[in-house]
Design a protein around this nucleic acid. Structure first.
Lengths: 341, 341
DNA sequence: GCACCAACCGAAAACGTTTGCGTGTTGAAA
DNA sequence: TTTCAACACGCAAACGTTTTCGGTTGGTGC
């Protein structure tokens, strides 16, 4: 077992000082051609690589980005991580991923853990519980310490920082308008409870689309789901007990569950009932019929967030205080769950 | 902006030495009750938390696990990460995730990056390219430096280390036997190219099941797919040009694509043709018909891998050299794509 | 009044780097 | 022969910890 070699060991072996070794490896003009080559050859032979922890301590930079997301077994968040990771890698950064499991406490713990020197900045999406409690002290704390934070998707206006979002309201509006344009009148909405920021925005977009097209908003057609694991029964009831033309669902799972419910009572999709979902994930693509959906490019979102964070990290401490909110464009991916006209 | 406070600052402020502060905070008996309380109160007031980088440097332990996987936008790998993360967190470890994108070079780069002090040990699954090249020098290198490695799912016998796998051969065998028991004779196989270790094992299991039941292995019924993104056409052709009772697919995507192909030529699933997949992911669950599949518990796998790694890390350098291979049990999740008898 | 022992605290080393500055040697110019 | 620049290298500090060892008090026992 050959342990990693350090400057000190090289110095001892070659009978020079540590600084000489360090300078040789960094091609300092202070060092003679002779010793430089000797040191470099030796270092290469022993496969010397500087210890990143020591560098982090010295430079007060870890070249590492901390990510906190609610869940990773979730296609959208996985794509975001993928986007973050790629951009981060291109710039020589590593990525530490932690999961809040939608829990406020875990979010706080992970944040405090990472804030103690392990990372240079955060990219995060709020947990449900945090959005519910509206308690963001852990985040402001970190920002006050001078550590940049970029929020994505589930964000809040209560915090000043860079953000990357999609226009949830507009995207929902356009999706519902598309249904209206196709002649549907009785359009149901399957959404989340209101404290989930993106759910609320999409709900608002749905309502706006109906109103601007002079369609009455029927509360019976709006289903707000608290726990995604037990949504099946509620969705079936919604579809069974109402005459519905079309369904707009704020995520993939609600959409595919709606389709299953419709099939169960022998309604054909899209002939008898149309469905539009949100988030272009695996389910929408491989469901049958495949699902028309609002695409929300997670890779782009993660990439953008990483880019913003790295730019801020490397802007020489300018402390802009001028925070930006980037909006990633969305578009409707038309598939089989809506009629082709 | 209140920067993080250090021992030195507290010491200066309270006019004591750094060591006194450190000892006070760690409740050393050397320190008088008086000063201890004073220091602790002050530290609490200024929310002192020790700098983890400094601790890492001193202790030569980072309390961080490095993970290298081929892809994260992939349900199985996401569940594994989830499993790793939870167990790691329970033991006070963080998780750095890097992606190889199925590329040998990226795998090597990420590995070398993390090996330079950032982590205490690795959990990894081989990239396709690495399995193809059979070049594992980067891994042996790391192991030789005394850093423990745990491999999962895509492993190799060429490396001695702890491993977590499922019995791919047996699982495939049992799945195919199940089809045979139901009376099917013309069972097609949709698998990967042979250098993907798990693909090969599952293929072998399929063949074994046929042979032990005296069914001839028909090469025309075996489709080996290189690139998952362009598998559709090949699968359609397989199903169109052969009389097939049933399909065994080595992953979800092949399974759902097979179902789509069957529907396209008006074959009903499971009435006309049955399908069994591998990996109990989102697609299998939400496809219609939902897909009977071999469940491969990623959470358990990741959790086990993390547990093994942490145990080795904390076994006081005993250097067992006694490597274990844990086999996670699988079972068939019966759904709609196979007949209920 | 002296020795000894707690009790309490500080100095310094160590982890592995980088870097400003000081110093010694060489050679050439005066 | 003296002087001085250029060159090559080493020292030491710094990043933030923990911990060993040593030192300074004060009190107690004789």
């Amino acid at each position: 077992m050959r342990k990693k070699v350090t400057l000190k060991q090289i110095a001892k072996e070659l009978d020079v000082s540590i600084s000489t070794v360090s300078k040789s490896l960094r091609d300092s003009p202070e060092i003679s051609e002779d010793t430089r080559q000797k040191v470099q050859a030796f270092a290469k032979l022993y496969n010397y690589k500087p210890n990143l922890i020591a560098l982090s301590l010295k430079n007060k930079k870890t070249k590492t980005i901390g990510v906190i997301i609610p869940e990773i077994v979730h296609h959208f968040f996985a794509t975001v991580i993928s986007g973050i990771e790629h951009v981060a890698n291109e710039h020589g950064y590593n990525v530490i991923v932690t999961l809040s499991d939608e829990s406020f406490d875990k979010e706080v713990i992970n944040m405090e853990m990472l804030a103690n020197g392990s990372i240079d900045g955060f990219i995060m999406s709020l947990s449900k519980e945090t959005q519910h409690k509206k308690d963001f002290h852990h985040i402001t704390e970190v920002i006050n310490q001078g550590m940049p934070v970029v929020m994505f998707d589930r964000v809040t206006n209560d915090i000043l920082c860079d953000k990357v979002i999609i226009d949830d309201n507009l995207a929902a509006y356009e999706a519902v308008r598309d249904l209206i344009d196709k002649g549907f009148k009785k359009i149901a909405l399957i959404t989340t409870v209101d404290y989930v920021s993106v759910g609320k925005l999409r709900t608002d977009g749905y309502i706006k689309a109906l109103k601007t097209n002079n369609i009455a908003v029927d509360p019976k057609l709006i289903l707000k789901i608290e726990d995604i694991d037990i949504c099946e029964h509620q969705i079936e009831e919604l579809i069974n007990t109402n005459e519905i033309d079309a369904v707009f669902a704020v995520n993939e799972l609600f959409a595919v569950t709606a389709i299953k419910a419709a099939k169960k009572i022998n309604l054909k999709v899209p002939e008898d009932i149309s469905v539009i979902g949100f988030t272009d994930g695996i389910i929408s693509k491989y469901s049958s019929p495949s699902i028309t959906t609002v695409s929300q490019n997670g890779i782009k979102m993660g990439g953008k967030a990483a880019k913003m964070l790295i730019e801020r990290l490397e802007s020489e401490e300018e402390e802009d205080e001028h925070y930006k909110t980037e909006v990633i464009e969305t578009h409707l991916v038309v598939r089989e769950s809506t009629p082709t006209l």
